[in-house]
C-alpha cells in the first residue's frame, strides 16, 4: 500500500464540485409563496434547482446522498396547487394534493375510485400524509403506484411556467426511464382525470413486496366499459414492467369488442405477459412479473364477466 498525497489529479476525486455540495446542510431552499414567484425562481435557475413538494421521494435520495442539487424550490406553501375540484367531465386534482386527501375525497371515491385505491397502497400513513400526486408524476418512477391509474384514465397533466400553461396527455408525458416532456422551467400544476362514465369501471391491482408500505413488483390499472359481458372499451396500464408506466395497446385491441369468456380472458392475459418487457431486479424477476401480469389481468377480466 502506498500513500501518495502529492499526486495532482484532483479530477480523480469527483467530477464536479456540485456533487460535493449535494448534502442537505450545504444547500439552499427557496420557499415561494405564490406561483408567480415559483415561476420566477424556475426561470432564474432553470435546471440548477430541484422542486421539492412533500419530500417523500426526494428526501430519501438526499439522505442516501444520491441527489445532486444545491438549490431547492420548496413549493409546499403554494396553496393554489391544492384541492380536488369537479370540472364537469373531469376531476381536477391539484399537484400538491396528498394521498391522504385522495383517499378521503368523495369526488375521487365516486369518479376515479382506482386512484383512491392506489393511494391507499402508497407507503404508510406517514407517507400518505405528505406524498403528493404531483410528486408521484414528476418523480417518474416506473413503480409509481398512482401512475397506471392516470394512464388507464387517459388523464392530462397540466404544466405551467413563466411562458404559460399547457396540458399534456398522460400517455405522452414520459419519454424514457425517469424522463418526461417537461421543460426545465416547468412545474406540474394539476392532473385532470376524466370521470368514469356510466357503465365504466376501474380496477387497481398492486403486487408489492409485502402487505404494507411496499414498493410494487408489478402494478396494474384497468378502465373498461362492458355491456353484457362484451367489452366496449378497455384501457390497460402497468407499472414496474418497463422503463416507464405503459399502456398495453395490443392487449387492449385484442379485447376491444370481445365477449368475455374463459378462453378469451386467458388468451388476452397470456398476450399481455408477452407484451410487457419487465426486467429482473432486486425486488423481483422478469419471469414472475410476466406471469403475474397475466394472472392479474385474468383476475380483473373475470370480475367483469
Amino acid at each position: 500500500m502506498s500513500f501518495s498525497p502529492s499526486l495532482g489529479f484532483a479530477k480523480l476525486f469527483l467530477p464536479s464540485p456540485s456533487l460535493l455540495n449535494f448534502m442537505a446542510l450545504d444547500s439552499t431552499a427557496f420557499s415561494p409563496t405564490s406561483l408567480d414567484e415559483a415561476y420566477e425562481l424556475l426561470t432564474r435557475f432553470v435546471s440548477q434547482a430541484k422542486i421539492i413538494a412533500g419530500g417523500t421521494d426526494l428526501m430519501v435520495l438526499m439522505n442516501a446522498r444520491q441527489l445532486n442539487a444545491e438549490r431547492f424550490i420548496d413549493i409546499w406553501a403554494l396553496n393554489e396547487l391544492r384541492g380536488i375540484s369537479d370540472e364537469g367531465e373531469t376531476i381536477r386534482i391539484g399537484a400538491l394534493t396528498t394521498y391522504t386527501q385522495l383517499i378521503k375525497s368523495p369526488l375521487i371515491q365516486l369518479h376515479a375510485p382506482a386512484l383512491a385505491e392506489a393511494s391507499r397502497t402508497i407507503g404508510a400513513i406517514q407517507i400518505q400524509n405528505r406524498g403528493t400526486i404531483g410528486g408521484n408524476i414528476v418523480n417518474a418512477s416506473p413503480a409509481g403506484d398512482s401512475l397506471p391509474v392516470l394512464a388507464a384514465f387517459d388523464a392530462e397533466v397540466e404544466v405551467g411556467s413563466v411562458r404559460g400553461v399547457r396540458r399534456i396527455g398522460f400517455n405522452e408525458f414520459y419519454t424514457g426511464y425517469r424522463k418526461t416532456v417537461m421543460a426545465a422551467d416547468e412545474i406540474v400544476l394539476a392532473v385532470r382525470a376524466p370521470k368514469l362514465k356510466p357503465g365504466e369501471r376501474s380496477f387497481f391491482y398492486k403486487v408489492g413486496t409485502r402487505r404494507a408500505q411496499a414498493i410494487s413488483k408489478i402494478v396494474m390499472a384497468v378502465k373498461a366499459k362492458t355491456t353484457d359481458g362484451m367489452i366496449n372499451s378497455i384501457n390497460i396500464s402497468l407499472g414496474s414492467v418497463a422503463p416507464t408506466v405503459i399502456r398495453a395497446p395490443q392487449t387492449e385491441s385484442l379485447l376491444a369488442n370481445a365477449t368475455l369468456n374463459d378462453e378469451v380472458i386467458w388468451q388476452a392475459a397470456t398476450h399481455l405477459s408477452k407484451e410487457v418487457s419487465p426486467i429482473t431486479d432486486m425486488r423481483s424477476t422478469e419471469h414472475y412479473r410476466r406471469k403475474v401480469a397475466r394472472n392479474a389481468l385474468a383476475k380483473i377480466l373475470s370480475q367483469m364477466v
Binding site: 439552499t28 405564490s34 408567480d36 420566477e40 400553461v165 399547457r166 396540458r167 408525458f173 419519454t175
Partner: peptide
Amino acid sequence: MCIVSVISVISVAKNVCPNLVWSDLEA
C-alpha cells in the same frame, strides 16, 4: 414524438417578484 398543445394561458408571471430578494437568499 409527443404532441403537446398549449390550451390556455392562465397566467403570465411578472419578471420581478418584489417579495424575493434572490441574492440575499442565495448567500
